[in-house]
């Protein structure tokens, strides 16, 4: 069978850590973005929509490079963060940010589909019963999009597990520090005799992603049933 080296184990646990953090941090923003896109009457809604979806169609390498430009020590955001002693690039936080940006559109899309299925009358009923818009958001919209949020989160989690292009540019490929599963596989494939090890990590990757997708499907199906 396959045997994993300590750095392999580090890559597996780092991958999980990055994916979980990226998903958890994105959730509230994803929820708010979906809310704005579905329920608000913002003038720049179409622009916001395209902006959120841009990372879905851009090559991840481009996303990574743009992030590097702004978060690097010369970049506007990077310089600001450096002043308060925070360094992002080539740390695991960079991997989190890369995953967040690339996975965000998937999260928003899922939540949005769930929110669009909520009957407008329920929202109107809640308002006429004395609820402010933020009260309605928490007491009606949030619970009724619960399953869509879970589905979106699992989708984003799976996407984060596989993030490669943006991560390698922004976080580098430092074993034990920023090397996630896909980056470790990449390393093995370019090392003579590393095929077996690469295959082992591929298997881990397949098992993880498959598990998440099965979970996601189950949640979406239960959600549809719940709506009917």
């Amino acid at each position: 069978m396959f045997e994993f080296s300590p750095t392999d184990w580090q890559a597996i646990s780092l991958s999980a850590q990055v994916a979980i953090t990226a998903t958890a941090v994105s959730l509230p923003f994803g929820f708010m973005a979906a809310y704005l896109l579905v329920f608000s009457r913002l003038p720049g809604k179409a622009l916001l929509d395209s902006l959120i979806n841009l990372p879905l169609v851009l090559p991840p390498v481009v996303v990574g490079y743009l992030l590097l430009l702004s978060l690097g020590s010369e970049g506007w955001l990077g310089a600001m963060l450096a002043k308060v002693g925070i360094r992002i690039i080539f740390t695991w936080k960079a991997a989190v940010i890369a995953s967040m940006v690339v996975g965000f559109p998937l999260l928003v899309r899922s939540i949005r589909i769930g929110m669009e299925q909520i009957d407008d009358h329920l929202i109107q009923a809640s308002r006429t019963l004395g609820a402010h818009w933020h009260d309605t958001l928490l007491s009606v919209i949030l619970p009724l999009s619960g399953r869509a949020i879970l589905a979106g989160a699992s989708l984003m989690f799976a996407r984060s597990l596989g993030e490669f292009g943006a991560t390698i540019i922004l976080a580098g490929n430092i074993p034990g520090v920023t090397q996630t599963i896909p980056l470790a596989i990449y390393d093995y494939t370019s090392t003579p005799g590393g095929d077996r090890m690469a295959l082992g990590l591929c298997l881990v990757s397949i098992v993880l992603s498959f598990g998440v997708l099965v979970l996601n499907e189950g949640l979406v199906r239960r959600f549809r049933k719940g709506v009917k």
Binding site: H121, L122, Q124, S126, R127, T128, G130, H132, D135
Partner: peptide, 18 residues
């Protein structure tokens, strides 16, 4: 806004919170 008007509504379909 609706929540300040204190005008209640009974809709054609009950629209209870599911």
């Amino acid at each position: 806004p609706p929540e300040k008007r204190r005008i209640g509504v009974v809709f054609q379909h009950a629209h209870l919170f599911p």
